[in-house]
Computed example of a mutant assay.
Amino acid sequence: MKNIKFLFVLITSVMSIQAQNTITEAKLFTTTDQAVGNITFTNTGDLVYSHHPFFSPENRVMIMDAKTKTSKPFPTKAWNTPRTTDDNFLSNVLGVRNDENGIVWMLDMAQRDNVTPKIVGWNTKTNELERIYYLPTSSVPKHSQPNDMVVDTKHGYFIIADEGIGNGGDGTHAAFIIVDMKTGKTRRLLEGTRTTLPENTPTVINGKHLAVNSKDLLVGNDGITADATFEYIYYGPLNGTKIYRIKTLDLVNEAFTDTELDRKIETYSEKPNNGGMSIDIAGNIYLTALETNSVAVVLAKDKSVKTMVKDVNMVWPDGVSYNHVDGYMYVSAAQVNKGAVFNDGNDLSTKPFYMFRFKPIVEGVSFR
Rank of each mutant, 00 (worst) to 15 (best):
G192P: 03
T195C: 13
T196D: 04
E199G: 12
E199L: 04
N200V: 14
N200L: 04
N200D: 13
T201W: 01
P202V: 01
T203K: 04
T203S: 11
N206H: 09
N206G: 14
G207E: 05
G207M: 06
K208R: 15
K208Y: 04
A211D: 14
V212M: 08
V212C: 03
N213S: 13
N213K: 15
N213H: 15
N213A: 12
K215W: 06
K215N: 13
K215Q: 15
D216T: 14
D216Q: 12
L218I: 02
G220I: 12
G223A: 07
I224M: 04
T225G: 05
A226T: 15
A226G: 09
D227F: 07
D227I: 05
A228D: 13
T229W: 08
T229P: 10
Y232W: 12
Y232R: 08
G236C: 09
P237Q: 02
N239D: 11
N239Q: 03
G240I: 00
T241E: 00
K242H: 11
K242C: 03
Y244G: 08
Y244L: 11
Y244D: 07
R245T: 09
I246C: 01
T248N: 04
L249N: 15
L249S: 10
L251V: 08
L251C: 10
E254N: 14
E254R: 14
F256R: 08
F256N: 12
E260R: 10
L261D: 11
D262C: 02
R263T: 11
R263P: 04
K264C: 06
K264A: 02
I265C: 08
T267A: 11
T267Q: 13
E270V: 07
K271S: 07
N273R: 12
N273G: 07
N273H: 11
G275W: 08
G276I: 09
M277L: 15
M277N: 09
S278E: 13
I281F: 05
A282I: 09
A282K: 14
A282C: 09
G283M: 07
N284I: 13
Y286V: 12
A289P: 09
E291Y: 02
E291C: 09
E291H: 07
S294Y: 10
S294K: 07
A296F: 07
V297F: 00
V298T: 10
L299G: 08
A300Y: 01
K301C: 04
K301H: 06
K301E: 10
D302W: 10
D302T: 04
S304P: 11
V305H: 05
T307N: 03
T307Q: 04
M308L: 12
V309L: 00
V309Y: 00
M314C: 04
P317D: 00
D318G: 08
G319Q: 01
G319T: 11
V320L: 06
S321A: 15
S321N: 15
N323P: 15
V325L: 06
V325K: 15
D326C: 12
G327D: 13
Y328E: 14
Y328T: 06
M329S: 03
M329W: 03
S332P: 14
A334L: 06
Q335E: 10
V336F: 02
V336P: 05
